[in-house]
Design a protein around this nucleic acid. Structure first.
Lengths: 326, 326
DNA sequence: CATCAAAATGTTAACGCAAACATTTTGATC
DNA sequence: GATCAAAATGTTTGCGTTAACATTTTGATG
């Protein structure tokens, strides 16, 4: 007990005793057992991060998005002296399988990174009664805190930039998976077009499978190149696709932005390096991750705190891949 | 106890009882507490990954390197039904601070990712008697398993490619931090030069701080551009530096590889996208991570297993940034 | 239907810690 | 040096699990 008091700096300890204890700890190379601690006082000082972003490998798949968020999450955890348990496990078919890991590990709270949330996920989160913050999508339930960026506004804004430049025939690449980010971006696109009395040509709206990433972009580029009446600009719903398009255009000898403007979302590093550099919209991922973790910490500390959702605006990241149409 | 038996599928259980237990588990939304489990049987089924790669943020800093390894580590863990605890914590001045976290969490084993290992780290690892595998560097101790790639061979090989192309004046960018990868690459460079009767010009060997990454590459490019007797090729000790050089060369209007060949190491994604694409050497990171985790699992299962170190060869990743000198 | 081994289930204890409560020590005061 | 509150230290207990051991139930056999 005295050792416990020394370690946790609680209660009254005579200075000499403290030193003796610390000496012994040093000598014995003692480390407190955080499992026993957690078992005892129900606080393990770690949180779980789950993602249902499509694709098999949790850390790798989701690269730019996941990475930026994790950076922000980390900063917050460091502040709160908590750790991160990242799951990797057991078939992991979907979200709830990740959750199971966290229930077993008894993490203090969960951050769910997901661009799509179905109602069973929501129910499960509520039922399990564990503090939880969602990043990357929104729900109707006011009992779940969501941190997201304003994909609708971003889609609208980037479309408006193109229209300002004089584009009328603007294409859009959607993805076939359920993905609220992409859906919102597309909705913003439609809204901006309508506001300017434009309508997207049916054959100018593409739908691809998200996992194909760059390859899908290349395919769209080929399709555009073969069109009798091609769009003068294409909005790719993410930078992978946009980069695929640009690289394929290079291969085909189609000048970008001369012949076609291409823009994307998420401001990936490769978009900065490619020629022409990619015009994109950035989500403030670091801030989002940080806020999510801070909020989660508050929920953990105080079960009565309801937390509050927050939508971050996205910012344009200028690049040379956008120009007026010929 | 019966519940325990059902969950762990041990002992004899009547079918009807098993069903009743499973029903109750379902109904009560029960999840076994892995802390209590770990406390009891000293196996928590998770491993720690520590990195002393320079820079503040563990996950972000080390991007391409760390990322690739983690991918491989993950595949193995999935196979073995173990989890990953990634630390984020407490000032984390150096390696041993990360270790402390793992001692407290009582992980089953540790993978240390580090390009530099000092003897106190080694001593600590041995003293604490916890299964441990090191990736990214080597030690003399045969009691520590090391998984590394052959940076010496890679440095030698890429230098030889340049010499084959006709280069005689070849520069090299080193980093000032202690980093066995870079040191080995440089040693390979020196060896290849010597083998061909060449000697690197003193002013053609640069030393930069690793954290500066791209910016440092840009600075080197400026320096090269201002030289009376510039090298005809520069080997950057990593792709960040090489990409900085290429981008600065673009800005300065210096044709690459026409005026100067630039090559790097690690085959980052941005190197594939940049124009000209970057000639680089790839470490088989996924394989390395996978093997490290597999080995660690063996060490954990069987304390008598000594494991065995392994050095992977690095492979050239061709790119357009290398050409014969003018 | 008594017997008995196998099958099924139950009980106890220990893992390491810290909350709650209990006891001892200290040293200031009269 | 007796008194007493504060300071310091000690004891017991329970957190949830499972190994080890104990007991009860089952059903096949003579």
């Amino acid at each position: 007990m005295t050792v416990s008091r020394v370690i946790n700096n609680t209660g009254n300890i005579r200075e000499e005793t403290r030193e003796r204890v610390l000496d012994a700890i040093e000598k014995l190379n003692y480390h407190p057992n955080s499992m026993a601690r957690g078992l005892n006082n129900n606080r393990i000082h770690s949180i779980g991060v789950a993602t249902s972003l499509s694709s098999s490998h949790i850390l790798v798949a989701s690269s730019p998005f996941f990475h930026g968020l994790l950076n922000g999450i980390e900063s917050s955890l460091m502040k709160h002296q908590s750790d991160l348990v990242i799951s990797t496990r057991r078939g992991h078919k979907g979200t709830s399988d990740y959750f199971r890991l966290f229930y077993e590990r008894k993490v203090d709270g969960i951050i769910l990174i997901s661009t799509y949330l179905d109602s069973s996920d929501v129910e499960e989160m509520l039922a399990n009664n564990i503090p939880c913050v969602v990043i990357g999508t929104r729900t109707d339930s006011d009992r779940i805190v969501c941190i997201d960026s304003d994909n609708f506004q971003a889609g609208k804004e980037i479309t408006e930039r193109l229209i300002e430049k004089g584009h009328r025939k603007i294409g859009f690449i959607r993805v076939s998976e359920q993905n609220s980010n992409v859906e919102e971006r597309y909705r913003g696109f439609g809204e901006a077009m309508k506001a300017h009395g434009l309508e997207p040509g049916e054959e100018h709206v593409f739908s691809v499978r998200m996992e194909e990433e760059e390859e899908a972009g290349r395919r769209v580029m080929k399709a555009v190149a073969a069109m009798a009446d091609p769009p003068t600009a294409v909005i790719a719903s993410n930078d992978f696709l946009a980069i695929g398009m640009i690289r394929e255009a290079q291969r085909l000898g189609i000048p970008i932005p001369g012949e076609l403007s291409v823009v994307g979302f998420d401001a990936m590093e490769t978009g900065r390096v490619i020629q022409p550099s990619l015009y994109s919209m950035r989500q403030p991922l670091g801030e989002m991750g940080f806020l999510a973790a801070e909020t989660l910490m508050r929920l953990i500390e105080d079960p009565h705190d309801a937390g509050s959702s927050r939508i971050f605006p996205m910012e344009p990241v200028p690049g040379d891949s956008m120009a007026p149409p010929k």
